[in-house]
Design a binder for these strands. Structure first.
Lengths: 300, 300
DNA sequence: TCGCTTCTGAAATTATCTTTTCAAAAAATG
DNA sequence: CATTTTTTGAAAAGATAATTTCAGAAGCGA
């Protein structure tokens, strides 16, 4: 009845053309702020969409559901799956394997994510984040969750080359209060919080926000609870054909920020970089200095 | 009435001590999978929490709400605020994102890299790497350089969930010989070596290769000296409009491998994952253990 | 153990939601 | 333009949810 379409929004999209005027109006309301808008009573939903309740009933039946409760429980289930753990996710993806190699499916998903994510990133937000991170007078702290810690680490490693006053917050949660204690109003806190969201991080964010810390948050499109404490929020598309979420988009943004911060004051960065080069050369056991002055390309 | 506390979960947390046994039980259910679990009918919620509906009513009133509908609409509002659909602010970027902004240039470069890299990756190589990593009898070691360490870390974190016998090699070079000492013929060593290539890593790779270790190498298109020791080499495009090289393509490949390894033996992975979930639930400071099997009933 | 208080859920009651019915309005057709 | 078909919502009917009542259960102090 509902075909092999995965989500309710897919179903709505597929049958959109066959809907009547009032039903289209209702569909718009549902897709706007999806799927939360559908989780209210049929009466409230009808009112929000400015249609009658029978219209709602007729439409959901047209879409293949037995009735409004059936429709709603499907929405509810969808939300639950998307918000919570990765176990249920895998089973969803596994079903629609189109036979192509995982690499290609991955690449497709990543490119699609990139397009969507970029469409929703506010350029002023990006510039503001870059400006905050470029201000050497403001110490920067970075923290990630269980998975995203590696991203915080990556960001940290680069920022550290570019400027001073950068701190990577330990993965050990019990030390977090001490970091917050050291932060001063106007300092910058960069957080990575992708589902499943971590309660401790929200606590840290709330306290930091109360103390006037400027919070930059990397999260997914669902939005972590930290959203309300953050000054700048990057919502990224993280869905890929995997049991896991993808960090690729997050990394793209991190790298773009690194470049923005770096070019904001390139001169002093260049100095720091060559100083660093020298340090590496002298402390390394095996390395012979192999200077390649190609405009400061640095890696590994 | 509800004080100046922000979220429903805050309110629950604040009055947790004053709750009775059945109410605490209900509170657990609500916080578990918050806030979605609270968006069902009072009947379904009571069933999930194994308490009676009057208990639900009494608790929400105790928390300061006028009744269950009031409570639920507050939850709903909260979810709406945090999720906020990106589709709605869809056509904002076209205007204020000129094609020259660093973000767009970055995205273009990444997509181009992806196309080039994928064209050069040998699918059999990918599958072979995945097979080696999927074999639980073969311990896996991972190491990265100064920058790429974060990628090794990311790979490690995921692999560790999927299987046992995974070791992340310390960043401290002087400990490397000890790791090599532990490796046995047939073991797998995953190395990240992007320019500038590190002498110590080549040394480690050479010795490991002599001892019959299966080496999987992630490098750039120029190819690190380790290439000659490795059984599988992934050469990736890493150039972006930045003073730095990009790790995005590397991450894409890592994630694809993670998925390949995971789906290679999904059943045992699933078990490990849910065991892990349980551990997280019990060890976390804020989440309390609460096993409950979900029932199908749900309604607004 | 008793008596008291607090807690809890079954059942009844009340309120609200969901579905159906049906007639009027709108759109399509000849 | 008349007729038919489709769409739509008001209102009634039916189903479910939310609240209240109340008696028994559980905990507590003496």
């Amino acid at each position: 009845m509902t075909g092999n379409l995965k989500t309710v929004s897919d179903i709505i999209g597929a049958s959109y053309d066959t809907l009547t005027r009032a039903e289209k109006q209702l569909a718009e309301t549902l897709l706007d702020n999806y799927p939360v808008s559908g989780l209210v009573s049929i009466t409230a939903l009808a009112e929000n969409a400015r249609v009658s309740t029978p219209t709602v009933v007729r439409m959901v039946q047209k879409l293949g559901f037995s009735g409004f409760p059936d429709f709603q429980s499907r929405l509810h289930q969808e939300l639950e799956e998307t918000i919570s753990n990765p176990i249920s996710k895998h089973d969803r993806w596994a079903a629609d394997a189109p036979g192509t190699h995982i690499l290609n499916r991955f690449a497709d998903a990543v490119v699609a994510n990139m397009r969507d994510s970029l469409a929703h990133i506010s350029i002023p937000d990006f510039d503001r984040a870059a400006a905050e991170l470029s201000n050497r007078k403001k110490p920067v702290y970075l923290a990630g969750g269980r998975i995203t810690h590696a991203l915080a680490d990556y960001f940290f490693t680069h920022l550290q080359v570019i400027r001073s006053g950068v701190t990577l917050i330990s993965t050990n949660r019990s030390t977090w209060p001490q970091y917050v204690l050291n932060m001063r109003p106007g300092n910058v806190l960069v957080l990575f919080d992708i589902r499943r969201y971590e309660q401790e991080m929200e606590t840290m964010a709330r306290i930091a926000a109360e103390r006037g810390i400027f919070i930059i948050l990397f999260t997914d499109t669902w939005g972590s609870p930290i959203v309300k404490h953050a000054k700048v929020v990057f919502r990224l598309n993280i869905e890929v054909p995997s049991a896991w979420d993808s960090s690729v988009m997050t990394l793209v943004l991190v790298e773009a920020l690194i470049e923005a911060v770096q070019s904001a004051n390139w001169d002093s960065t260049r100095e720091r970089m060559s100083d660093l080069e020298e340090l590496f050369d002298t402390t390394s056991l095996f390395r012979r200095p192999m200077r390649k002055e190609k405009r400061g390309k640095q890696q590994n």
